[in-house]
Design a protein around this nucleic acid. Structure first.
Lengths: 201, 201
DNA sequence: GACATAAAATACCGACCGGTAATAAAATGA
DNA sequence: TCATTTTATTACCGGTCGGTATTTTATGTC
């Protein structure tokens, strides 16, 4: 996935560091909101010119898509790993609760959820990627719950798919509340309450 | 609250109907999102000129604030009435579930929740009003739950305030999902599951 | 040195934004 | 009829947006 840098050996050497630009953009998008950060602002923060950015990413859509990919790689992957870890139902739910209500990286919310909430404001590439990730997350939640169901306890009359969607939305809600400055303990209390439906006799 | 129309008796008679403008703006804000509807667009939809709008409402902030007040009067009041109705816990929760997951007016979401979600993009007047309404809603939920608690069943170890916040956020989540085209039955299923924590033995 | 190449930066484009100054139109009062 | 008052409209303001044409700068090659 990485280097297609055949060392051009001709022409002015590039000073722009795409990784650094992605970092700057990801931080800015994440800390505030993709819809509230302009390409101009990113160029300024990254100390590059606009044409440089456009030559690298093609468009604002291309940039935000690249940022989202990076975010999925660096942050979301952890959640997928936790879901796939084969730990028990209660233990995994506890880990999810910890992540959503206490992980310091989620203090300003989750970039993916911010993008999903403002889906209609995204370009087509980024929007498509958001939908793909959303589907993958739902599938991962469903697989996790299916395993738990096979292993024993499960509330009567609840489909795995509905449970997966419910679980995902509750986590999204909790993290979104983090971004709005809600008290961490409160969020933990509410998320624990919401997820208690999975571990009720 | 209504008529300060002392019949000016002089000058060119006004053709602008403030009520109609509010209706147009409320519909537009509600159907899409306040952040995605410009003053220009509203003027065009209402067939008035921009200065007419600004003379009536002062600013975009003034307009959105007036729209929010109208929305609170016309829509949110019903929810407050339902909470205040003194019906039992289960019955009132069922009514809330119906409203959130099936009321046709919520098919494109709730204007108040849209404003709250994009609070930072609102002007100061409107933002203040959003916070006032949010506080009032939380108080109403808390009063409702307190009454239910006095009347009997209540999950151990859950404070009324936390329960009120939880209840409000679950309803907000359900209605927001309506706006994103989620299946009504699914939403009802998930909201019922979330609120089942209040009616568990 | 002259030339080709590739990346940089400047300066611009048209579109739209919220908001307003200047002016035209429609009514009443004298 | 003509001034006054009130409203409506046109045309504009400065600013920001995403995006780009143009030019400058830095390198390797000959």
């Amino acid at each position: 996935m990485s280097d297609d840098d055949p060392k051009p050996a001709r022409g002015r050497p590039r000073t722009m560091n795409a990784e650094k630009v992605l970092d700057v953009a990801m931080t800015a998008y994440w800390q505030s909101d993709p819809a509230d950060v302009s390409v101009n602002a990113i160029c300024q923060m990254a100390s590059i010119s606009k044409p440089s950015l456009y030559r690298e990413f093609g468009s604002e859509d291309g940039l935000s898509r690249a940022v989202l990919d990076r975010y999925a790689e660096q942050v979301l992957s952890e959640v997928f790993v936790a879901l796939d870890g084969g730990q028990g139902l209660r233990q995994t739910l506890a880990a999810l609760i910890d992540f959503a209500s206490a992980d310091p990286r989620m203090e300003t919310g989750c970039l993916f959820y911010k993008m999903r909430a403002g889906k209609h404001r995204l370009g087509p590439e980024t929007r498509t990627r958001v939908e793909e990730i959303d589907g993958a997350a739902q599938a991962a939640y469903a697989a996790f719950l299916q395993a738990a169901r096979d292993a024993g306890e499960w509330p009567d009359g609840l489909s795995v798919d509905a449970g997966a969607k419910y679980l995902g939305e509750q986590i999204a809600l909790a993290i979104t509340q983090r971004a709005s400055g809600e008290d961490k303990a409160r969020i933990r209390e509410m998320l624990t309450l919401a997820l208690s439906v999975f571990t009720r006799p």
